[in-house]
Amino acid sequence: MNRSITATEICKSFGARTVLNGIDLDIQKGEIFGLLGPSGAGKTTLIKILTGQIAQDSGTAAINGNDSRKLSGDDRKRFGITMDNFGVYERLSCYDNLKIIAGIYGVGKAEIMNALRKVGLEEAAKTPAGKLSKGMTVRLKLARAFMSDPDVLFLDEPTSGLDPVSAEEIHRMILAEKQRGKTVFLTTHTMTEAEKLCDNIALLSEGRIVEYGRPCEICRRYDHQRRLRIHLTDGNDIEIPHDKDAADMLSELIISGRAETIHTTEPDLETVFMEITGKELSA
């Protein structure tokens, strides 16, 4: 079985407000999956349902083939989760924060140090968590999610509010987990993050998945102009149709050294999202 996370026809309402409406997901092992949507689209609710924190009104959800509503202790040990609002014990050191989780999962000091090393907090092991920068706090939360060496990681907006350098460090850690064969379920409203990290993405709007697939394929699907924009060395720009006839012209421009840069006219995910929903992704 290669499926890591599945969801079928998930619906969830809070009172009269429908938050999720017929969500289907099929995420393979070793995949980085990105769920994109503006604030309030239902991303966090979906993570909570998938991880058994709240129950859906209808539909089924499973992690590693286990029903999310009936997860056992061992099942929970097989996934790590970090959410934006998850706290740390501010008065306790980074090491002691992880020691609590280590005690629950029955793992030792070596695993704690390994998790700290993995997120680059080895030297801050004795620093109280309340004195960490925001980026370091996110890394500590990631280390906590890594403690049981889970197969699946749920990361809810892991780079939200971080500076570019800290965000880059988090990206590196996420990609390293993929290299180790882990499945990563990522929510974000940053399109560049999704394009850079994710094998597949889903665009979520008003509780529905409005687009699903590989980021580049989705962008290509919405490239209505299908043109190439070439910036020439003389400073001028030209546009040509993006078809088989473009090859001769392109090769001529490249061989003659007149083409400085070549761009396609395919939109980015933000533009795609706006086209589908009429709303901004980062709203």
Binding site: T51, Q53, R76, I81, N85, F86, G87, V88, Y89, I101
Partner: peptide
């Protein structure tokens, strides 16, 4: 308030 209880409950406590 600090959402550490949720972390514990998510970790099998």
């Amino acid at each position: 308030e600090k959402n550490t209880l949720r972390v514990l409950l998510m970790s099998n406590v």
